[in-house]
Computed example of a mutant assay.
Amino acid sequence: MVTFVDINGFEEFTKYTETIDSKGPPVLFYFSGSKLPDGRSWCPDCVEAEPIIKAFLNELKKTVIFAYVDVGDREYWKDKACPFRTDSRTRLMVIPTLIKWNGVQRLEGTQCTKRELLQMLFEEDD
């Protein structure tokens, strides 16, 4: 069973990470550009990856927490001082990025659209 969490911005992300139970289910963070009025991200790669990841999650037969993190608008994200880029816990270079919390596993950019890589990331603990 997948539990979905929506996180908006760096401050909410930081607060959420402080509540993660190390004995609880694995937490995966999906970092994406903020949504435009039409419901799609300003980031074309995020628009491409999101339905693939959601379809994969709908088939997943394990307990995980999937946290969708809105990194902000294009201008904010492109700033080299953006905290999602500079924070040692995230160190994002591109979006979309999918990170398994407290692990080294991550998928970046077009890797997020590859089902076999998603499978490997989600089954790492088995």
Score class of each variant (00 low, 15 high):
Asp21Arg: 10
Lys54Pro: 00
Asp79Ala: 14
Asp70Cys: 08
Asp70Leu: 15
Met1Trp: 04
Ile52Ala: 00
Asn8His: 14
Asp45Leu: 00
Pro26Thr: 04
Phe29Gln: 08
Lys114Pro: 07
Pro96Thr: 14
Arg91Val: 12
Val69Phe: 00
Phe66Ser: 04
Arg89Asn: 12
Tyr30Pro: 02
Ile95Leu: 14
Gln119His: 05
Val71Arg: 01
Gln119Trp: 01
Glu75Ala: 15
Gly72Arg: 12
Ser41His: 00
Glu12Ile: 10
Ala49Met: 06
Asp45His: 10
Arg74Val: 11
Val64Glu: 02
Thr14Leu: 07
Asn8Val: 08
Met1Lys: 05
Ser32Phe: 05
Glu108His: 10
Leu98Gly: 00
Glu50Ser: 07
Lys100Ser: 07
Glu116Ala: 04
Trp101Asn: 09
Tyr30Thr: 10
Val64Asn: 00
Val64Thr: 08
Glu50Phe: 08
Thr113Gly: 11
Val27Thr: 05
Phe10Pro: 05
Pro26Asn: 12
Arg85Ser: 14
Gly72His: 11
Lys54Arg: 14
Lys114Phe: 13
Asp87Gln: 13
Thr113Pro: 12
Tyr16Ser: 02
Lys78Tyr: 10
Arg74Gly: 03
Cys43Phe: 01
Ile20Phe: 06
Arg74Tyr: 06
Phe4Gly: 03
Pro37Lys: 15
Pro25Cys: 05
Ala55Met: 12
Gln105Leu: 12
Thr110Lys: 03
Ser88Cys: 11
Thr63Asp: 04
Glu116Trp: 06
Ala67Cys: 15
Leu36Gln: 13
Gly24Gln: 05
Pro25Thr: 09
Val5Tyr: 08
Thr14Ser: 08
Leu28Ser: 04
Gln111Asp: 14
Pro51Ala: 04
Glu11Ala: 09
Ile7Phe: 03
Pro26Trp: 01
Glu108Gln: 08
Ser32Cys: 14
Thr110Ser: 15
Thr113Lys: 02
Pro96Trp: 08
